[in-house]
Simulated assay, not measured.
Amino acid sequence: MAYAVYVFDAYGTLFDVHAAVRKHAEKLGPDAQRLSSIWREKQLEYSWVRALMGTYLDFWQLTQQGLDTAFALVPGADKSLRNDLLSAYWELDCYPEVPHVLTDLKAAGAKLAILSNGSQPMLDAAAKAAGLTELFDEIFSVDSLRTFKTNPQVYEMVTTHFRIYPEEISFQSSNRWDIAGATAFGCRTVWINRAGMPDEYTDLAPKAVLADLTGLPGLG
Rank of each mutant, 00 (worst) to 15 (best):
G181L: 03
E200F: 08
A211H: 13
N193Y: 04
P206H: 05
F185D: 00
L204C: 08
V209S: 11
V209T: 14
R188G: 00
T189P: 04
S174F: 07
D203T: 15
A211I: 12
M197R: 11
S170D: 02
W191L: 03
Q172P: 00
A184M: 08
R194P: 09
T214R: 15
F185L: 11
D212T: 09
P166M: 14
L204Y: 08
I179Q: 02
N175E: 05
S170P: 00
D199C: 12
E167L: 07
F171Q: 08
T202E: 14
P166N: 15
M197D: 13
C187R: 02
S174G: 12
Y201V: 11
T202H: 11
Y201E: 09
V190G: 03
N193V: 07
F185K: 11
T183A: 08
A195G: 09
E200I: 02
N193M: 08
C187Q: 05
F171N: 10
P166Y: 15
A184S: 11
W191E: 02
T214M: 14
D203M: 10
Y201W: 13
T202D: 13
T214V: 15
T183G: 00
A195W: 05
D178W: 00
I169R: 01
R176G: 13
R188H: 11
A184P: 01
R188L: 01
S174H: 06
A208C: 14
P166R: 15
L204F: 09
T183Y: 01
Q172W: 10
V209K: 09
A180Q: 02
M197N: 10
R194G: 08
S170I: 03
F185I: 08
D203Q: 14
V209N: 04
S174N: 07
K207A: 10
C187T: 03
W191N: 01
E168R: 07
R194H: 07
E200M: 08
A180P: 00
L210H: 11
T189F: 00
A195H: 11
D212K: 04
I169V: 15
V209D: 04
A211N: 13
E167S: 13
S170R: 11
T183W: 01
I179W: 02
D212N: 15
V190W: 05
L210I: 10
V190M: 05
D178V: 01
G196P: 04
W191H: 06
E168A: 12
M197S: 12
G186T: 09
M197Q: 13
A182S: 10
L210P: 07
E168M: 06
A211D: 14
A205K: 09
T202Q: 13
D212Q: 04
W177G: 01
A180M: 07
G196W: 06
D203H: 13
S173G: 08
C187E: 02
E200A: 13
A195T: 09
D199F: 10
V190K: 00
Q172T: 09
I192L: 07
C187D: 06
Y201N: 14
R194W: 05
W191T: 01
R194I: 05
